[in-house]
Amino acid sequence: MNRKELGRRVAALLDGRAGGSPAAPTGVHAVTGGEICDSYRITLPGGHTVFAKTRADASPDFFAAEAAGLERLRATGTVAIPRVLAADADLLALEWVASTDPTPAKAERLGRELAALHDTAAPHYGTAGPLYLGPVPLTTPAPPPAKPADWPAFHAAHRLEPLLRMAVDAGGIGARDTADVEALCARIAEVAGPPQPPAYIHGDLWAGNILWAERPHLIDPAAQGGHPEADLAFLELSGCPHWDRLIGAYEEVRPLPGRAERAPLHQLHHILIHAALFGGAYGPQSGAAARAALRGAP
């Protein structure tokens, strides 16, 4: 849709779909960020500013799933999440959060708040409803697994292996790297570390999904019950600003002995989706992560 139509759609949604014609926004400006959606800053009459994102070929439940994930994280009361203002089949509107420069103090605060999030028990791994990592749907078996010992098999069967098949089908990963990821999936219980009960995680926490407001806000989640080290591993992989300060503050609250050695296992999920979607160097990087994880096997 064009910007004028988008502005009117958002205004109508925020007006509760009331009758009549809502007042036209005073400004609709494209903003950067994200890989699969178009994002905008919309100024409504009276100066109220909102964020909106659209995706022309979104699945009917795509934005509803994201809105549910944002609310799932917000309900924990641990991390700052923009308020969901409206969700429709092809757009999502959120409160506008002004992001400034990351600082060590902000990183430390986020580290402590992530530790609190990861100490929040989830009822099971995965979600009861639809879930997407980027444009890719993620599955949760029925009944959903809930025991700490269930995580390795769940992660292999419902996270790593489907993305590996996508990458193979797309030509994004070679035979040797495929074999090494398959070997890791077969031996994942040996390298998974101490059993981890299901905890709420963001699920897609790369550095670009942080808004560095005075209190950092998290956006674009694949929120679910999962393994907390997934969030940390992807933050590190994506070059999170002031990473040392963030992880130091996190581990003051929630120590994780052996976390660094397990990082390649938890990074693999996100490397594989890039191999599936973009190919290139992500295929060899997937194999390298699998081999690094296997080196931690007894």
Rank of each mutant, 00 (worst) to 15 (best):
H155I: 05
G193E: 02
G47I: 05
L164R: 10
P298M: 10
A149Y: 09
P298T: 11
G279E: 01
L131P: 00
D180S: 10
Y40W: 14
L114G: 07
G248C: 12
G193F: 05
G258F: 08
L114V: 14
G203R: 10
R109S: 14
D88V: 00
R55P: 07
A233Y: 03
A86Q: 09
R72L: 14
E113T: 15
I173V: 10
S59P: 05
G19F: 00
P102I: 11
R176T: 12
N209H: 13
A122E: 08
A116Q: 14
L73P: 11
A281E: 04
P82H: 04
A189I: 01
A12V: 09
A128W: 00
R74S: 15
V10G: 05
A64S: 15
P298W: 00
H217V: 08
A149G: 08
L131D: 09
R262S: 04
Y282H: 08
G129N: 06
R187S: 06
W206Q: 07
L211C: 05
L265E: 02
A293M: 02
L13Q: 11
E35F: 02
A12P: 00
F154W: 05
G203L: 06
M1E: 07
L114P: 05
P22V: 08
V181Q: 12
A23W: 03
T26G: 12
D119C: 11
L237K: 11
L131W: 08
L13D: 12
C37Y: 01
V253F: 03
F62D: 10
L272Q: 03
P257T: 07
L92C: 11
L268N: 04
L133P: 02
T127M: 04
G111T: 13
Y282K: 08
A24L: 09
R55G: 09
M166L: 15
L235K: 04
A11E: 06
E161K: 15
P141M: 13
P25Q: 03
R17I: 00
F62C: 04
L277D: 04
V28P: 02
Q267D: 02
L6D: 07
Y250C: 09
I210E: 07
H274P: 11
R109D: 15
T120H: 15
G20F: 02
I247S: 05
C240E: 08
T103K: 12
P145W: 02
A80P: 12
T43Q: 14
A98D: 14
A56T: 14
G248F: 00
P255H: 05
A289D: 00
I188P: 05
H242A: 07
A80D: 13
A167N: 11
A249L: 10
A149M: 11
E66R: 01
R8T: 10
T100K: 09
D90V: 04
T100N: 04
L272G: 06
L205I: 09
A24M: 10
W96A: 01
R55E: 13
E261M: 07
G134A: 01
A175Q: 15
L70W: 01
A128P: 00
T178V: 07
L256G: 02
G279R: 03
A56G: 00
P257F: 13
R159W: 10
P22H: 05
A293F: 07
V79P: 12
R74Y: 01
I81L: 14
P102L: 08
A153R: 15
H242W: 12
A30M: 04
T43I: 04
H155W: 15
A275F: 12
N209W: 13
E229N: 05
L114S: 07
P104I: 06
G174E: 03
